[in-house]
Design a protein around this nucleic acid. Structure first.
Lengths: 202, 202
DNA sequence: CAAGCAATCTTGACACTGTCAAAATAGAAT
DNA sequence: ATTCTATTTTGACAGTGTCAAGATTGCTTG
């Protein structure tokens, strides 16, 4: 149970690997993470990580999981933070918080929702669970706002949640990838999106 | 100028490479494309492609360019195809056409807007030009629809275009990646998105 | 306290990748 | 016919993920 760095058994390697890998990804993206470099940086042999993660894929999934937890946490505190805000304004804050996360840690966000895990790789069961529950938070939120007449009552809540999340997600990718826009316009576009999404009630 | 397959000089290698690479990506995604396998499949040595494309990156950009051209073409013919449709319904068709392209050729779409080129790699100048012009088509479309009162007049056209495209793009990724939804619900969610985006006028 | 067991870590190896440098080949221009 | 140039090839290097076999350690049981 020692954490001394000189012992043959590291004692805490799994967590150390996770943290170091998270850092590498945060700074340079998924493709700058190689198991070998990671092992080297942590001071362990190339194949040592394979006793804690079956795959590179599993490592990535574990990191993505932490990303989801972080994002959930950052977004969950919004209601308590703005207790006296009208539904529409609150929704905007919610959206901004979501986008801020994606903007502050773009590489983590890309990993969480990116091709590397979900298409090229294979999402872990536990990652699937966490991501679904993260989405459920969103659905519940939409449901509350729908009851306050922020959205069209005739559309099913799930559809609204999917559509609005997709809009949000597209927005994040928009300046995460920097294809059609520079990041400075972020807030402006986000606000426009919010205005377009919510009911233009009188 | 011969196209015989036995001559030392291939004569048409660039196009052959482009086509073969496009096929490989279409079937298995970017990460299944390796220069070596590609060269092998075309019947040429590993480094032959480097005399027609400086980089793997340049090859990918060239393929992405063709993707943009294809998409533009598929989407441009929509207005002529539905001459008597009301603006809102026409917009919906436009959206559906866009999504259909992303849905039918998900790997090409992912390449066109994906991280591989825009973040990990370096988009070619000519790719940048084509993608911008592709977006401009969208902006002009939005502008026309805005004049027909489909969107809030107070928002700048560019903002509406960015926001709506982002929503569309997010939608495409939503089932391209299969994170939060199964592809069967595609049309339903798309329709919901359209309804949310356009002005609930009367 | 000793022996054995299981967890952990290391070394070696393999197949694969992108790409550079130098040599070989063929067609075009002189 | 000879030179020049565009094209293609072979050889090489550094890097990757990961499997198999061996080494080392700490924990558990007798």
């Amino acid at each position: 149970m020692m954490k001394s760095k000189k012992s043959y058994h590291h004692g805490d390697l799994r967590k150390t690997l996770l943290d170091a890998a998270t850092m590498i990804i945060r700074e340079g993206g998924v493709e700058t993470l190689s198991i070998r470099k990671l092992a080297d940086q942590v001071g362990v042999s190339r194949t040592a990580p394979y006793h804690h993660f079956k795959d590179k894929n599993e490592l990535l999934c574990a990191i993505a999981e932490q990303g989801f937890l972080l994002q959930d946490q950052a977004v969950k505190k919004i209601p308590a933070q703005y207790p006296s805000l009208a539904p529409a304004a609150l929704f905007e804050q919610y959206v901004l918080a979501y986008i801020r996360f994606a903007n502050e840690q773009p590489e983590t966000y890309d990993l969480m929702f990116g091709r590397e895990i979900w298409k090229t790789g294979t999402p872990t069961d536990s990652l699937k669970v966490i991501s679904k529950s993260s989405f459920r938070i969103w659905v519940e939120w939409i449901d509350e706002l729908k009851e306050k007449n922020l959205f069209n009552q005739e559309e099913p809540t799930l559809r609204i949640a999917q559509a609005s999340w997709a809009a949000l997600h597209g927005l994040c990718r928009l300046f995460n990838d920097g294809i059609y826009v520079n990041r400075d316009d972020l807030e402006a576009i986000a606000t426009t999106t919010v205005h377009m999404l919510i009911q233009t009630s009188e």
